[in-house]
Amino acid sequence: MRRPRGRGAPRARGAETGSASVWLIALLMLAGCVLAAAFGIGAAVTARHRAEAAADLAALAAADRMLVDPTGACAAAARVATAQQSLLTSCVLHSDARLDAVDVAVQSSVRGALFAALPPAHGRARAGPLSTPDVVPAGLAALPAADRTSARLPARLPAGRSAIRSVAGRAAAPAA
Score class of each variant (00 low, 15 high):
Ser166Ala: 10
Trp23Glu: 11
Glu52Asn: 13
Leu114His: 04
Leu28Ile: 14
Gly42Phe: 07
Thr132Tyr: 13
Ala173Tyr: 08
Arg161Val: 02
Leu35Ile: 10
Ala176Val: 07
Pro133Ala: 12
Thr82His: 07
Arg161Asn: 06
Ala58Ser: 15
Met66Phe: 01
Gly112Tyr: 07
Ser131Cys: 06
Ser19Cys: 09
Ile164Ala: 10
Thr149Gln: 12
Ala26Gly: 15
Arg2Cys: 05
Ala163Arg: 00
Arg79Thr: 08
Leu30Gly: 14
Asp96Pro: 01
Gly8Glu: 04
Leu57Gly: 14
Thr71Asn: 07
Ser90His: 04
Ile164Val: 13
Gly6Cys: 08
Thr132His: 06
Pro4Phe: 04
Thr17Lys: 05
Val102Thr: 05
Thr71Tyr: 02
Asp103Ser: 15
Ala142Trp: 07
Arg111Ala: 14
Gly6Arg: 12
Phe115Val: 01
Gly72Tyr: 03
Ser108Asp: 03
Pro129Thr: 03
Ala12Trp: 15
Gly72Phe: 01
Leu118Val: 04
Ala117Met: 08
Asp64Ala: 06
His49Phe: 03
Ala78Gln: 11
Leu60Ile: 10
Leu87Cys: 01
Leu114Asn: 02
Ala173Asp: 12
Arg65Phe: 06
Gly169Arg: 10
Ala145Leu: 13
Asp69Thr: 05
His49Gln: 08
Arg79Trp: 02
Leu30Cys: 14
Ala146Asp: 15
